[in-house]
Design a protein around this nucleic acid. Structure first.
Length: 485
RNA sequence: GGCGACGUAGCCAAGUGGUAAGGCAGAGGUCUGCAAAACCUUUAUGCGUGGGUUCAAAUCUCACCGUCGCCUCCA
């Protein structure tokens, strides 16, 4: 089955056809860096990380652009949110931007999110934005008024096509304070005149000012991806006005389709309402990572569809963490069995397992090709985990089956979904790790001796003290194994 | 008020016409000195409610009830 994508523009799943065969040009709206990122951001960016990785795994050459908004994003008070925070913290605006941009990347790195190919900053693309605004004025889609420039929504018959919002409808229930400089209440700012107190300001043909929030995405996407590109992503909460305005600006400036496919993620809710900065009901990624492994957070995100809203709760995350443990226990057993060479099966006992591995790849592929259905993809991995556990228990898995299973878990569960731990790689401190392993083995031997002489008090003491150090002992039919919790 | 989603087991969550994936929790069992882990069995005659279409509906349609998002800063 070829890749199908739910295109918000058409409100249906469509066959994905890239503009250039074998190549995907993708833009995703990035964060405004004025504070720590929370799990809502994690949901969106992990979701697109999976999209990005699946496209690459499928053989596409991907150029993934995600902007960093560091100017122009206004509060409803009309104040720039970056400037406000900078003033509160008594730092330079760009110092604030730098701090939280680094934090954002650090959080994404922790979550195993592959960095975008280009992370353009709005403040570094002022000339491109001015140029685009000039084009729009030249074509009669924008007008200057009192040092600011507005986009004329009435000049764009397609305005509202993404969100399904009609200009007339909005007029009836409008709650926006009408600026007198606007011709139409729905007109939005492309360029905003700055007063003297405004620190972030640039020279322009209309005097000193700064860009509106929406124009950066239009200007930077055309620069790095072209006038028409394949996929535009973001959170559904930005469908209006932000995404709608991007389309209007770009299509009116270039007279061609902006993005062919629109993918928008569902919001992360807490007790039924959206997790957001303004409501204060958010959990930062940093705090979440103190309690849960990054793979467990990705497991939680992957257990629902990217485009439906998810509900955050401690119990939902706990359940995800346990599911993650079970899946990874199976992966660890496959790896350990291989590493220790405890292979008891051969080709005569593992024929069915070879078929299961092929089946796993096929089912995983068709799930991901069906609009990146990660929950189904995850369930396919669980089915394999169960079969591999059984095979290892029964001693029917051959070396080839174990090796291929390890590879499937690594590629699909690790490289694509990021819910499987990477195999421990040898490091500079590998010598210490070997010594530690030898010491643990020694304690296990001492415990076995104690158990043989029915000295369970002593055997339990060894197990308990190791457990306190984070080393879990498990007695199986083939002896005692250990793992780091 | 307008626009858009959604309502599936105790919880999370897939499934969009052919007879309900997966995870968590629960119950019983195997294994164990006891645990842990794993495995086996089991847990929705039913998918918000009521009509309709169909041989067949969680899936299509209509109405109603409920929840949420957006319309104002948010991924």
């Amino acid at each position: 089955m070829s890749l199908h994508i739910y295109n918000v523009l058409a409100r249906e799943k469509q066959v994905f056809t890239p503009i250039v065969d074998g190549q995907v040009m993708m833009y995703v709206c990035g964060p405004t860096v004025y504070d720590y990122s929370h799990l809502g951001h994690a949901k969106t960016y992990v979701s697109f990380d999976i999209v990005n990785k699946w496209l690459r795994y499928s053989g596409y050459k991907v150029r993934y652009v995600q902007n960093i908004t560091d100017v122009g994003h206004l509060l409803d008070s009309g104040e720039d949110r970056i400037l406000k925070r900078a003033r509160q913290s008594r730092v330079e605006p760009m110092e604030l931007v730098e701090t939280y941009m680094r934090e954002y990347f650090a959080d994404m790195d922790s979550l195993g999110v592959m960095r975008p190919d280009i992370s353009p900053r709005a403040s570094a693309h002022i000339p491109e934005q001015i140029e685009m605004i000039q084009t729009l004025i030249g074509k009669g889609h924008a007008y200057e008024s009192n040092g600011s420039v507005y986009f004329s929504v009435e000049s764009d018959p397609d305005y509202g096509k993404l969100s399904g919002r009609r200009i007339e409808e909005n007029e009836a229930g409008k709650r926006i304070a009408v600026r007198e400089e606007k011709r139409h209440p729905m007109d939005f700012a492309l360029w905003i005149r700055a007063d003297d107190k405004h620190i972030l300001q640039w020279a322009s043909p209309w005097g000193r000012g700064y860009p509106g929030w929406h124009i950066e995405c239009s200007a930077m996407s055309v620069k790095y991806l072209g006038q028409t590109f394949d996929i535009h992503g973001g959170g559904i909460d930005n469908i209006f006005p932000h995404n709608e305005c991007e389309i209007a600006q770009s299509e009116c400036a270039h007279d061609t389709q902006f993005s062919n496919y629109w993918m928008l993620t569902g919001s992360l809710n807490v007790d039924g309402v959206k997790m957001s900065k303004s409501l204060g009901n958010f959990v930062t990624i940093k705090d979440a990572l103190k309690e849960y492994r990054p793979e467990a957070l990705r497991f939680f995100i992957s257990s629902g569809l990217y485009r439906t809203p998810a509900d955050y709760s401690a119990s939902a995350l706990d359940a995800a963490a346990k599911g993650y443990e079970r899946l990874n226990t199976a992966v660890r057993r496959v790896r350990d069995t291989l590493a220790r060479g405890e292979i008891r099966g051969d080709e005569s006992t593992s024929g069915r397992l070879i078929d299961r591995l092929d089946q796993t790849r096929m089912q995983f592929t068709s799930a991901m090709n069906d609009d990146f259905n990660a929950p189904i993809a995850l369930s396919v991995l669980f089915d394999l985990a169960k079969d591999m556990n059984s095979a290892i228990d029964a001693g029917t898995a051959s070396r080839m089956v174990l090796e291929q299973a390890a590879q499937v878990f690594q590629e699909l569960g690790g490289d694509v979904l990021g819910v499987v731990r990477n195999e421990a790689k040898p490091t500079a401190s590998a010598g210490n790790a070997e010594r530690e392993a030898a010491l643990i083995e020694m304690l296990i031997e001492m415990r076995i001796e104690a158990r043989k002489s029915k000295d369970f008090a002593r055997s339990d003491a060894i197990r308990n003290r190791l457990a306190k150090l984070g080393v879990v002992l498990e007695d199986g039919v083939k002896g005692t194994s250990w793992r780091v919790a």
